[in-house]
Design a protein around this nucleic acid. Structure first.
Lengths: 193, 193
DNA sequence: GTCTATATAAAGATAGAC
DNA sequence: GTCTATCTTTATATAGAC
């Protein structure tokens, strides 16, 4: 669609950063251009479809990166469930927050229905499905009891993701340490006794 | 500040509903007025501080209602931890989604710093602290092992809240049933063996 | 590829009649 | 308490020079 270039990449990264931090509606085209170090009119040279096209493109890219990051964590520590989940948590904590509720209820209603549907599907396939799969494999190995793994995967994912919420005042320990505690509880809770 | 009246209450409820569903930035004053069945200029009669004042007022009210709803659930089933958590979940599922990440990262940056600080504090005191307290009391009774109960409370809260995210296509069972499963895992995971 | 200038539309808000 | 009319500001987007 548009030529790759160093400047375009700066725009995409600025957009990804700001959209991810504040959501579609709280970010202006000027914010993005300013973050990328160019005039906001210049942005349309790199993003002919404007704000909406930019959002769809960088959100898809962010989701794909999450999918790949999670897949790498899963592959690296296979078949050690605890290490797999810790590595997924480390990845999620290292990335900007990915607020699925905001994405679905606030951001996506502002874009074309086709794009919204595409991103919704991509989000679930990138986040929930891989986590559920890791649990499923551990279940097949007999390490955890059979639960509704979709529900549990969602709970685990949002538990880790919510660590981003904590303002520093409430952050008594490193987020990764909190994540380990949460993972411990989940694993213990699913382990047959 | 402003006289209570049936019309003003309609405005507040419309604002609460829309802000809660889509967030501060995705809702316009016209949306709220339209939902309340009045012209948008009339809205300023009931809300002299405009959109921002309206948001702060209804968000505080929503948070306070959540605090009270959780407190009622806790009191009703004291000292039965599982029933307490189920009742909290039932309350949260029955209410519109309360997205803390969106509130803190997307909505609050748009309001005056004083208001933002006030709402941040109120949010944590209304949601996380009560849930942590229920866990703490169960811990004192010896029913669950000592964990970082702040982390676990946050995980539990966001796990339940994330059930709102699931589009109907992914909703194979009632949300309350999923919540029960999640609560089971949390309790089992914290129970000393 | 970036800028200045400008067009267009939408949003928040106020004044004043009824 | 509600409306019509209007004002001001901001946002998205385009045209065209350099």
């Amino acid at each position: 669609m548009t030529e790759p270039s160093e400047a375009r990449e700066r725009v995409l990264q600025a957009a990804a950063k700001l959209f991810s931090a504040r959501g579609y509606n709280a970010v202006t085209v000027k914010d993005i251009a300013s973050e990328a170090g160019i005039h906001h009119a210049s942005l349309y040279h790199h993003a002919p479809n404007g704000k909406e096209g930019l959002f769809v493109e960088v959100t898809a890219r962010t989701l794909t990166q999450h999918r790949d990051g999670i897949a790498a964590a899963v592959a690296q520590y296979n078949p050690d469930l605890r290490r797999q989940l810790s590595a997924i948590a480390a990845w999620l904590i290292d990335q900007p927050p990915l607020d699925m509720i905001r994405l679905i209820y606030s951001d996506l209603p502002a874009v074309k229905p086709d794009s919204a549907e595409y991103l919704t599907l991509l989000a679930f396939e990138s986040m929930l499905v891989p986590v559920a799969q890791v649990l499923e494999e551990a279940s097949v190995r007999g390490e955890i009891a059979h639960h509704d793994l979709g529900s549990i995967a969602g709970a685990l994912f949002s538990s880790i993701e919510s660590l981003h919420t904590l303002p520093d005042a409430y952050l008594t320990r490193p987020r990764q340490a909190m994540a380990e505690d949460i993972i411990d509880v989940f694993i213990a809770g699913m382990t047959p006794r």
